[in-house]
Simulated assay, not measured.
Amino acid sequence: MKEENVILVNQADEPIGLMPKMEAHEKAVLHRAFSVFIMNDHGETMLQQRAGDKYHSPLLWTNTCCSHQRDGETNIEAGKRRLLEEMGFQTELKELFSFIYKAPFDNGLTEHELDHVMIGHYNGNPSINPEEVEDWKWMCPSAIKEDIAANPGQYTVWFKIIFERFYNHLMDNANQDEG
Protein backbone atom coordinates (compact mmCIF):
# COMPACT_ATOMS: atom_id res chain seq x y z
CA MET A 1 0.00 0.00 0.00
CA LYS A 2 1.36 3.41 -0.98
CA GLU A 3 1.92 5.77 1.94
CA GLU A 4 -0.35 8.78 1.90
CA ASN A 5 0.99 12.30 1.67
CA VAL A 6 -0.14 15.04 4.01
CA ILE A 7 -0.57 18.66 2.95
CA LEU A 8 2.06 20.88 4.54
CA VAL A 9 0.67 24.30 5.45
CA ASN A 10 1.77 27.57 6.97
CA GLN A 11 -0.01 29.05 9.98
CA ALA A 12 -2.57 30.69 7.66
CA ASP A 13 -3.53 27.21 6.33
CA GLU A 14 -1.98 27.94 2.93
CA PRO A 15 -0.55 24.79 1.29
CA ILE A 16 3.25 24.85 0.94
CA GLY A 17 3.90 21.28 -0.23
CA LEU A 18 3.28 17.58 0.29
CA MET A 19 5.17 15.08 2.46
CA PRO A 20 4.72 11.40 3.29
CA LYS A 21 2.62 11.09 6.47
CA MET A 22 5.24 9.23 8.53
CA GLU A 23 7.99 11.69 7.57
CA ALA A 24 5.77 14.64 8.58
CA HIS A 25 5.13 13.00 11.97
CA GLU A 26 8.82 12.16 12.44
CA LYS A 27 9.88 15.75 11.64
CA ALA A 28 6.92 17.39 13.45
CA VAL A 29 6.11 19.49 10.36
CA LEU A 30 2.86 21.51 10.40
CA HIS A 31 0.25 19.85 8.20
CA ARG A 32 -3.49 19.96 7.57
CA ALA A 33 -5.76 17.54 9.42
CA PHE A 34 -9.39 17.18 10.44
CA SER A 35 -11.41 15.84 13.36
CA VAL A 36 -15.05 14.77 13.07
CA PHE A 37 -17.50 14.74 15.97
CA ILE A 38 -20.82 12.97 15.38
CA MET A 39 -23.72 13.83 17.70
CA ASN A 40 -27.10 12.12 18.05
CA ASP A 41 -30.54 13.48 18.90
CA HIS A 42 -29.86 12.84 22.61
CA GLY A 43 -26.90 15.25 22.57
CA GLU A 44 -24.39 12.40 22.85
CA THR A 45 -21.07 12.20 21.00
CA MET A 46 -19.96 9.05 19.18
CA LEU A 47 -16.49 7.99 20.32
CA GLN A 48 -14.28 5.37 18.73
CA GLN A 49 -11.63 3.17 20.30
CA ARG A 50 -8.66 2.93 17.95
CA ALA A 51 -7.77 -0.54 16.65
CA GLY A 52 -5.16 -2.47 18.60
CA ASP A 53 -2.66 -2.64 15.76
CA LYS A 54 -2.52 1.12 14.99
CA TYR A 55 1.08 2.41 14.87
CA HIS A 56 0.34 4.96 17.58
CA SER A 57 -2.30 5.34 20.29
CA PRO A 58 -3.73 1.80 19.92
CA LEU A 59 -6.88 1.00 21.92
CA LEU A 60 -7.26 4.59 23.11
CA TRP A 61 -10.61 6.40 22.87
CA THR A 62 -10.96 9.40 20.59
CA ASN A 63 -13.49 11.41 18.58
CA THR A 64 -15.65 9.75 15.90
CA CYS A 65 -12.90 9.93 13.28
CA CYS A 66 -9.92 11.99 12.25
CA SER A 67 -7.30 11.94 9.53
CA HIS A 68 -5.61 14.07 6.90
CA GLN A 69 -7.00 15.74 3.79
CA ARG A 70 -5.71 14.52 0.44
CA ASP A 71 -4.32 16.94 -2.13
CA GLY A 72 -7.26 18.61 -3.91
CA GLU A 73 -9.84 17.43 -1.36
CA THR A 74 -11.96 19.89 0.66
CA ASN A 75 -12.16 19.54 4.44
CA ILE A 76 -15.77 18.35 4.23
CA GLU A 77 -14.99 15.82 1.45
CA ALA A 78 -12.11 14.45 3.54
CA GLY A 79 -14.27 14.18 6.66
CA LYS A 80 -17.04 12.35 4.79
CA ARG A 81 -14.54 9.98 3.13
CA ARG A 82 -12.86 9.03 6.38
CA LEU A 83 -16.16 8.71 8.28
CA LEU A 84 -17.28 6.14 5.69
CA GLU A 85 -13.88 4.34 5.71
CA GLU A 86 -13.66 4.09 9.51
CA MET A 87 -17.24 4.09 10.78
CA GLY A 88 -19.18 2.84 7.75
CA PHE A 89 -21.78 5.59 7.41
CA GLN A 90 -22.30 8.95 5.74
CA THR A 91 -23.89 12.15 7.00
CA GLU A 92 -23.64 15.87 6.32
CA LEU A 93 -20.78 17.66 8.06
CA LYS A 94 -20.26 21.29 9.01
CA GLU A 95 -16.93 22.88 9.88
CA LEU A 96 -16.93 24.51 13.33
CA PHE A 97 -13.44 25.94 13.78
CA SER A 98 -9.77 25.22 13.19
CA PHE A 99 -6.66 25.60 15.33
CA ILE A 100 -3.01 24.54 15.52
CA TYR A 101 -1.69 22.08 18.09
CA LYS A 102 1.48 20.09 18.66
CA ALA A 103 1.44 16.79 20.56
CA PRO A 104 4.38 14.37 20.90
CA PHE A 105 3.81 10.61 21.25
CA ASP A 106 5.76 8.08 23.29
CA ASN A 107 7.06 6.46 20.08
CA GLY A 108 9.00 9.56 18.95
CA LEU A 109 6.39 10.79 16.47
CA THR A 110 4.73 14.20 16.83
CA GLU A 111 1.39 15.50 15.63
CA HIS A 112 1.79 19.13 14.53
CA GLU A 113 -1.50 19.90 12.88
CA LEU A 114 -3.74 22.66 11.70
CA ASP A 115 -6.90 20.79 12.63
CA HIS A 116 -10.29 21.50 11.07
CA VAL A 117 -12.98 20.42 13.54
CA MET A 118 -16.31 19.31 12.03
CA ILE A 119 -19.65 18.19 13.40
CA GLY A 120 -22.38 15.98 11.99
CA HIS A 121 -25.54 14.26 13.22
CA TYR A 122 -26.41 10.56 13.07
CA ASN A 123 -28.66 8.32 15.13
CA GLY A 124 -27.80 4.85 13.88
CA ASN A 125 -25.13 2.32 14.75
CA PRO A 126 -21.89 2.50 12.78
CA SER A 127 -20.51 -0.42 10.78
CA ILE A 128 -16.93 -0.13 12.05
CA ASN A 129 -13.86 -1.08 10.01
CA PRO A 130 -11.94 -3.47 12.33
CA GLU A 131 -8.61 -2.44 10.78
CA GLU A 132 -9.22 1.10 12.07
CA VAL A 133 -11.65 0.82 14.98
CA GLU A 134 -11.79 -1.61 17.90
CA ASP A 135 -15.05 -0.39 19.46
CA TRP A 136 -17.39 2.60 19.70
CA LYS A 137 -19.88 4.16 22.13
CA TRP A 138 -22.13 7.16 22.67
CA MET A 139 -21.31 9.48 25.60
CA CYS A 140 -22.70 12.85 26.59
CA PRO A 141 -20.07 15.61 26.45
CA SER A 142 -20.16 16.31 30.20
CA ALA A 143 -19.49 12.60 30.93
CA ILE A 144 -16.59 12.64 28.44
CA LYS A 145 -15.14 15.71 30.17
CA GLU A 146 -15.39 13.98 33.57
CA ASP A 147 -13.92 10.72 32.28
CA ILE A 148 -10.96 12.47 30.62
CA ALA A 149 -10.21 14.14 33.97
CA ALA A 150 -10.50 10.82 35.85
CA ASN A 151 -8.85 8.55 33.23
CA PRO A 152 -6.65 10.68 30.94
CA GLY A 153 -4.54 7.69 29.89
CA GLN A 154 -7.54 6.09 28.16
CA TYR A 155 -7.80 8.89 25.56
CA THR A 156 -5.60 9.99 22.65
CA VAL A 157 -3.34 12.97 23.21
CA TRP A 158 -5.00 15.00 20.44
CA PHE A 159 -8.53 14.18 21.57
CA LYS A 160 -7.88 15.67 25.01
CA ILE A 161 -6.73 18.90 23.33
CA ILE A 162 -9.47 19.01 20.69
CA PHE A 163 -12.30 17.93 23.01
CA GLU A 164 -11.69 20.86 25.36
CA ARG A 165 -12.20 23.28 22.45
CA PHE A 166 -15.17 21.29 21.11
CA TYR A 167 -16.81 21.20 24.55
CA ASN A 168 -16.34 24.95 25.00
CA HIS A 169 -17.82 25.53 21.53
CA LEU A 170 -20.90 23.44 22.46
CA MET A 171 -21.32 25.27 25.78
CA ASP A 172 -20.88 28.72 24.18
CA ASN A 173 -23.50 27.92 21.55
CA ALA A 174 -25.90 26.44 24.12
CA ASN A 175 -25.61 29.64 26.17
CA GLN A 176 -26.23 31.79 23.07
CA ASP A 177 -29.31 29.72 22.19
CA GLU A 178 -30.74 30.35 25.67
CA GLY A 179 -30.04 34.10 25.55
Rank of each mutant, 00 (worst) to 15 (best):
W61D: 00
Q69F: 07
H42M: 12
R50Y: 06
E26M: 14
M46T: 02
E92S: 08
F97P: 07
Q90W: 14
F97C: 07
I38Y: 01
N75W: 04
W61H: 01
E77G: 06
G17Q: 01
Y55N: 14
R32N: 07
T74R: 01
D41T: 01
D13N: 15
S67W: 10
R81Y: 03
D41N: 07
E77D: 13
E86Q: 02
L59K: 10
G72K: 09
Q90L: 14
N75Q: 11
G79M: 00
E86T: 00
R81T: 00
H56C: 14
A28E: 00
K94Y: 09
L96F: 10
T45Y: 05
E23S: 12
F97T: 07
R32A: 11
S98I: 04
D13G: 12
W61S: 02
T64C: 09
A51V: 07
K54N: 14
T91Q: 05
E14S: 10
K80P: 02
E92Y: 03
M46Y: 04
A28H: 03
L47E: 00
P20I: 06
L59R: 14
H68Y: 15
E26A: 15
S98H: 12
K21A: 09
E95K: 13
Q69N: 15
L30P: 09
H68R: 11
R82Q: 05
V29I: 12
N40H: 07
L96I: 12
T91P: 05
V29K: 08
M87S: 07
L83R: 01
G72I: 11
L59V: 08
R82W: 02
N40V: 07
L18D: 04
L30K: 10
G52K: 13
M22T: 15
